[in-house]
């Protein structure tokens, strides 16, 4: 991953950002809102992963979008503007086509946001977030995260050891499968015994005697405060605009859209700022870095 400033803010800010953006994207089926969200998601993905990964991403997303936008008019015949009739006599309507396109773009934006979420929300951040609310489950979660690479590297070790003591390794496929099975069997036994060892160690260090404290490298600084404040204001403005019914889009039976007045523009602008927050943060930090460098 390239250097990303949003990655370094407090995990609570991270998760609130993604929750707010995905919530609005998923539940407001309005072309403008969906478009803003999709554009911001694309920009952030580009910033996170670079152009090459973005093109790969598109190769995955575009077929999905096409499929979803075709499926709706094929199965849904509501709407008054008939474009043409299908082979089975069902109507293909303009409204259903538009609906399919908008919901496909919504889905694409959601996929992109989840892609960004996977980059930004690493597992340590989940442990930090849930450690206080559900301590036991978080403990299990962090132990699983630790065990998985351990098991995989142990499988490699065992299989290497077995390979070096058996001369006919890799010649007979049936023997190969048996080798694989006993490697897995050995590793599973090892993992379970290791678990008991770990628990003994935990017990001797006083697990279960009192409240567990946990170490984390995250702090809530001024920047996090500022970001949370901006997010809160933008989210509230956006929700207020949506609640005032100035942004709405009706698909069936005929398309009727409302997007007028300062409330609609304000709400949409607030949503744009909210979505673009990571990108803006990166740009701001880049400028600050350039200025600092030019002073040297």
């Amino acid at each position: 991953m390239q250097k990303d400033s949003f990655y370094t803010v407090n995990p609570a800010v991270n998760i609130c950002f993604f929750a707010a953006v995905m919530l609005i994207t998923t539940f407001v089926l309005h072309p403008v809102i969906v478009g803003v969200s999709l554009a911001a998601a694309c920009a952030y993905t580009l910033m996170l992963k670079g152009r090459k990964a973005f093109v790969y991403m598109l190769a995955f997303v575009v077929p999905v979008v096409l499929a979803v936008s075709v499926i709706n008019p094929l199965f849904n015949h509501e709407g008054v503007t008939v474009l043409f009739y299908l082979w089975n006599g069902n109507a293909m309507t303009y409204e259903a086509v538009i609906y399919g396109c908008v919901s496909a773009c919504m889905f694409a934006a959601l996929i992109m946001w989840f892609f960004c979420l996977n980059c930004v929300m690493t597992s340590d951040k989940y442990v930090y977030l849930f450690g206080r609310i559900i301590p036991t489950l978080s403990l299990v979660f962090s132990m699983v995260l630790r065990f998985v690479p351990g098991i995989i590297s142990r499988i490699r070790e065992v299989s290497q050891a077995r390979r070096s003591i058996s001369p006919d390794f890799g010649k007979n496929p049936i023997k190969g499968i048996r080798h694989g099975l006993s490697t897995v069997s050995v590793t599973v036994t090892w993992a379970l015994e290791k678990a008991v060892n770990v628990s003994d160690s935990m017990k001797s260090r006083g697990y279960g005697l009192g409240r567990r404290t946990s170490f984390s490298v995250f702090s809530f600084d001024k920047r996090d405060c500022a970001l949370s404040a901006i997010m809160l204001v933008c989210f509230a403005a956006c929700v207020a605009a949506l609640a005032s019914k100035t942004i709405s889009f009706r698909f069936y039976p005929s398309i009727k859209q409302t997007f007028a007045g300062w409330a609609a523009y304000g709400g949409c602008a607030a949503f744009a700022v909210l979505c673009a927050l990571p990108v803006l943060l990166n740009i701001k930090e880049n400028i600050a870095w350039r200025i600092l460098k030019s002073r040297i």
């Binding site: 559900i134 098991i151 008991v196």
Partner: peptide, 23 residues
């Protein structure tokens, strides 16, 4: 699960089983 006050052993062996599933 939180309120059951599992012993450390059960907890860690459960975690190991989950890790085996993930792997």
């Amino acid at each position: 699960f939180e309120s059951r006050k599992l012993r450390a052993r059960e907890l860690v062996v459960l975690a190991a089983m989950i890790a085996i599933g993930v792997a």
